[in-house]
């Protein structure tokens, strides 16, 4: 019984982590950007979905769509306000662009977070679930929303895989992540690839944020922890490796869930942090990193 409980709950939360981390790692893989406003985009999408439903009375589907749209807009805003000006800046040395993008996206995340807190207070919000009720599998009563979350996450990840491996546009994105200069030689505009990637990222982060809002609830306080957890998962899996991120998401998700059930909910995050430290010391490029 306990075994099934951990298996089912861990699966849903890990799927959510995986979806959140996938977009994050994709952006890094293609453009070398660590987007520290990640958590803010997820929370922004969820709060938009909540506000649409509770302030303007739209249904859960319309609410979710508005939320995804918000994620999309926020992702583009991040790119145009905090990333592209630095990438194109001549005043900043190449070697320092990394820290500048980190700081700028961090600031942009704080700005988004504060704006959310100002407009909607920092109380936790929950998005109206699309699927309600519970279902019992293997003697474990689980909200249907949890299964729904896992399914949507995997459908989204599957679509991404299809896009990257089976479409022309996707292939050029993939190629760009391996060799940006080579792609430009082929006559593909790098900046249009960046736009594609940020669009995909906005969708993924938006969907992840809304699912999180339905499953657990979010508040403007969640911004920092969400960014930190995506960052940890991505580094654990190896920066830029999508499959590494997926596996790392499951490792972290199950470690947390297992700890919460078997030891105490108070120690939930500690083993995953310890694992991260150990991996950093023994294998700094992450579990599946290319470097």
């Amino acid at each position: 019984m306990l075994f099934w409980q951990i298996l089912i709950d861990g699966f849903a939360i890990s799927a959510l982590y995986a979806l959140g981390a996938t977009g994050f790692t994709l952006i890094f893989g293609v453009s070398g950007v660590l987007n520290l406003s990640h958590g803010a985009i997820m929370v922004g999408a969820a709060v938009a979905a909540w506000a649409a439903a509770s302030e303007f009375g739209v249904g859960p589907y319309t609410g979710a769509l508005i939320g995804i749209l918000a994620g999309f807009i926020l992702a583009f805003a991040t790119y145009f306000i905090a990333v592209r000006p630095i990438q194109r800046s001549k005043a900043i040395a190449e070697s320092e662009k990394e820290i500048f993008i980190l700081t700028a996206t961090l600031l942009w995340g704080i700005i988004t977070q504060e704006a959310i807190a100002y407009l909607f207070t920092n109380n936790a919000k929950t998005v109206l679930p699309i699927v309600e009720g519970v279902t019992t599998v293997f003697g474990v009563r689980t909200p249907r929303n949890e299964y729904f979350t896992a399914v949507i996450c995997w459908v989204a990840i599957g679509l991404l895989w299809f896009l990257v491996n089976r479409t022309r546009r996707g292939k050029s994105v993939m190629a760009a992540s391996m060799n940006p200069r080579g792609v430009t030689l082929l006559g593909i505009e790098l900046s249009s690839i960046y736009l594609t990637v940020w669009a995909i990222y906005g969708l993924l982060a938006g969907v992840a944020g809304i699912l999180l809002g339905m499953f657990l609830g979010v508040s403007s306080y969640s911004v920092g922890p969400l960014t930190a957890s995506a960052f940890s998962i991505v580094v654990l899996g190896g920066l830029g490796s999508v499959s590494g991120s997926l596996i790392a998401a499951y490792v972290v998700g199950y470690l947390e869930t297992g700890t919460a059930y078997l030891i105490s909910p108070a120690y939930r995050t500690i083993p995953a942090l310890l694992l991260l430290v150990v991996v950093m010391y023994l294998r700094p490029q992450g579990l599946f990193g290319r470097r």
Partner: peptide
Amino acid sequence: LPALRVSGPYFGLTTLVAVLMLQNFIVV
């Protein structure tokens, strides 16, 4: 110690984790 082995975002994350660990320790 890790800084002498790893660099860039990897070291950044190690220091972030150090903060989170300290925070957890203080709470526990």
